[in-house]
Design a protein around this nucleic acid. Structure first.
Length: 337
RNA sequence: AGGCUCGUAGCUCAACUGGCAGAGCGUCCGACUCCAAAUCGGAAGGUUGGGGGUUCAAGUCCUCCCGGGCCUGCCA
């Protein structure tokens, strides 16, 4: 029987795990697509959020940059509203149990399953050095989630296949060694996919280049310039619908929550009187209203210099759970205890 | 462990028997445009993976090192 009641204490709240790689800076696609959801989920779930540096090293990287980016990203996340009092936030490699559970899971995951992962097939074509870690990556993801026995995982569409593998791994473990892991369910975001400004047929991504994305912490002048040079079209053509680029600008406007402005602009588009230069200016203004407070908060957090402390406190909370679970897992599997 | 092969601009690649390091795409600036895109005009961009050597002259030849790919062998 399911009791339809908001869980009151952290004890009976469902647990969420989600991770983000410390590669480059946060862009507004990350923010509206994932991080803003993370922030909202804190109200109803026991959230564990991790900066997944073990994942980041599966692609070419530089050691000094990696550590700095992990810390920078932590500041970004806190600035966006992740609350270390309510949630657990830490750097993945502070808890080596992630790697250990990954290894254990690798023993019950088939080569064939991994070979079928479309993300591996795509990513392995982009780089000349294909690390074994890149191939094993989905197993580490399963370990991340299941190490904390999380029941819910906020993910994008593109991660559903990996999540399905996590479920298979959990089931296989449970049937071979005894019930331990819960069934994982995805929480799929509202599909707020922001497209590239310079090429609106592609998803916004850092790897396409500077002109393609807007950084959450980027300065206003630079953002203004990028929005102004966003691809549009020859002019409003209500009959034929909206071009991808213009739709993308509207998408951003909608995500900022300024629904009045959004309606107004939509009406102008339908009437065929919309000036894109005007739309761009409004998108810029409203977007900055969202970003400016985050940027301000970020500056303040950086000045306070407490990030190390916050991260180690987060790691401590995570460690308690991880250690306890890994002990049980070791016992179940027959490893040294 | 051995054999073969590759490494040139941010990316994809070119450069003859050794003879001034180049193109396309991307980037930046300008024109055009309500703003952009496309197009046109202009510009920047390099320790040719690294060290040593041969030569009047090395991206090119020799040598060692680093890295990638393919093949064979050995151990577990």
């Amino acid at each position: 029987m399911i009791i339809l009641q908001r869980p009151q204490t952290s004890h009976d709240r469902m647990r969420i795990f989600s991770g983000i790689q410390p590669t480059g800076t946060l862009h507004i696609g990350n923010y509206f697509g994932a991080i803003r959801n993370w922030v909202a989920l804190q109200d109803d779930y026991d959230c564990i959020y991790s900066i997944v540096d073990y994942h980041a090293i599966t692609a070419p990287f530089k050691p000094d940059k990696l550590r700095r980016r992990s810390h920078d990203l932590a500041l970004d996340l806190l600035a966006c509203g992740i609350d270390p009092e309510r949630s657990t936030i830490f750097i993945q490699s502070a808890i080596p149990e992630h790697a250990e559970l990954c290894w254990i899971f690798s023993a019950i995951t088939s080569f064939g399953d991994l070979s079928r992962m479309t993300q591996f097939k795509e990513k392995s074509q982009e780089t000349d050095f294909i690390s074994a870690g890149l191939f094993i990556y989905p197993i580490l993801q399963a370990a991340d989630i299941l190490l904390y026995r999380a029941q819910r995982v906020p993910v994008g569409e593109d991660q559903l296949q990996h999540l399905e593998l996590s479920r298979r791994i959990a089931r296989r473990f449970n049937s071979r060694f005894g019930d331990f892991f819960p069934e994982i369910e995805p929480i799929v975001g509202k599909g707020a996919r922001i497209m590239s400004l310079a090429n609106p047929s592609r998803k916004m991504s850092k790897s396409d280049g500077e002109a393609h994305y807007i950084g959450v912490m980027e300065d206003a002048r630079s953002i203004h310039k990028k929005i102004r040079s966003a691809v549009t079209d020859i002019g409003p053509t209500p009959a034929q619908g909206m071009s991808e680029g213009v739709a993308n600008l509207f998408q951003i406007l909608e995500l900022t929550g300024e629904s009045d402005l959004y309606q107004e602009m939509q009406a102008e588009f339908v009437a065929g009187t919309l000036r894109y230069s005007n739309l761009k200016e409004i998108v810029f203004q409203t977007l900055m209203e969202v970003l400016a407070p985050i940027q301000k908060q970020r500056a303040q957090l950086a000045a306070e210099g407490q990030i190390e402390k916050i991260l180690s406190a987060g790691a401590e909370k995570a460690r308690v759970i991880a250690k306890e679970n890994i002990r049980t897992i070791r016992r179940m599997v027959g490893l040294a205890v």
